[in-house]
Structures are given as C-alpha cells and as structure tokens.
Design a protein around this nucleic acid. Structure first.
Lengths: 108, 108
DNA sequence: ACCATATATTCTAAAATGAGAATGTTACCC
DNA sequence: GGGTAACATTCTCATTTTAGAATATATGGT
C-alpha cells in the first residue's frame, strides 16, 4: 500500500471521527439552514456553551465548518459542501434502513 | 427536534464512529475487491490477529461487514453496498481535496 | 479422542474523548 | 479605562477506545 493511501485512510478516519458524535451531527444539520452564531446554536441545540465551543473547535479543525467574526458574535457555517453531501447521503441511507427495519417489525 | 431525528443523529454518529479508524477504513477498502478470510486480511493489512478480530467485530456490530463461515475459515464481506457508496464518495472527495492542497503548495 | 489451525473473546494498561466548571479573551458600549 | 456580552480555552474526572498478550472456542484431519 502506498503512503498516499495511508494518508487518505488516516484523513478519512479523521473526518469520520469528527462526524462520530450526535451533537456534532446535529450542529451540521442545523447549519444546513444557514450560518448561525454560537448563542443561536446554544439556544437551538440546548447544550452548554463551553461544550458547544469544544465541538465547534473539532469541526473547525477538520475544516467541516468555518467561523467568521462579526462584531461581538461569531457566525459558524458549513465549510465544505461536498463533505456535507456525503454526510447527507449517509443520513438518507440510514433513514431508509431504519424505515425498512420498522416495516419488517410491523409485519412480524 | 423529533425523537426520530435524535435516533437518526445517534445512528449516524454510531456508523461514523465505526468508520473512524484508519485500520477499519483499510479493511473496508480491502473487502471491496471481494470476500476475504481473517488470515488473508492479516496478511494483507499486516496487523495482529486479535486486534483485527476486534475491529471486524465492531464493523459487524454496525452491519457494515458480514461474516460467513466456510469450514475452518470465516469469510468477511461488505454487508451494505449503500453505506459503502457513501464511504467511497467521502474518500473521493478527500482525495480531491488533498490533491488540490498539494497543487496549492506547489504554486507557492 | 487428540492435535493443529483459524478465529473470537477477555484482560490490561495507555491514550483519547466527553461533559461541565472555571477561567481567558475579544469586542462593544459607556 | 471599566463593565458586559459572546465566545474560547483549560482543567478535572469519568468513560471509552486501542493494541497486544493471554486465553477460549470452533472445525477439520488423523
């Protein structure tokens, strides 16, 4: 295996790791509607501010979201539409899978 | 937010968590060529057997791979082509991103 | 039944992650 | 410059994850 392959595997694992938390998934999903300040996110997601900032830092470090300061506030938005696409695709698949399982159960 | 949304977020986070390890990504990528026994995977990926089995168990528990016993050996294969598609999409995106960064650096 | 091979599980110690409290920093207003 | 709101960072502690060693569990061959 080439060393570039190894880097890709590591990179992909890192991105997945950043996505591997329900709160962070919720943040991403909320930001799909458009940029939001930290305070807005705290209100929407109902999470303690320090903790939210930590999760935002993780998403920022993987270039999944980006921050833009505007006066007193910091607006967060989705940085990479393509990665979000992959994320959406996965969610759609899992939603379908869940739905299919639900139907199976109701047949039994 | 509905409780079904919460379940989806948790499910998506769980699947991403299963993908959040370079070894497991490599396993998935190796299995794209077709089913392999544990011994074959040990040889290809160069990893200790106990550890590989642990990673396979994680992928199995999230229904990302499935196992089929054949005599003495256990063949592993990809269980859900759709999830693999999302995984491939993400890899493609990251590969392009890496390539783009590489080019940017060479311009500087 | 016994042995060897293939795979899985359990155990342990180290490292990483998560939440929340406390504290720092930045920018605005007076 | 002092105060306040918005956000980030640091610290602590509990939990989870990881690799590898040791051990257990098949299965097929003799």
């Amino acid at each position: 295996m080439s060393s570039i392959d190894k880097r890709i595997y590591q990179l992909q694992a890192d991105v997945c790791k950043a996505l591997a938390n329900p709160l962070r998934i919720e943040i991403i999903n909320t930001l799909k509607e458009g940029a939001k300040t930290v305070t807005e996110l705290v209100d929407i997601i109902k999470v303690n501010q320090a903790n939210l900032s930590q999760h935002l830092a993780i998403l920022r470090s993987k270039k999944i979201v980006e921050a833009r300061r505007e006066g007193n506030s910091v607006y967060y938005s989705l940085a990479n539409p393509k990665i979000i696409e992959a994320c959406n695709l996965l969610r759609r698949i899992l939603r379908e899978q869940l739905e299919a399982e639900r139907k199976l159960i109701s047949i039994k």
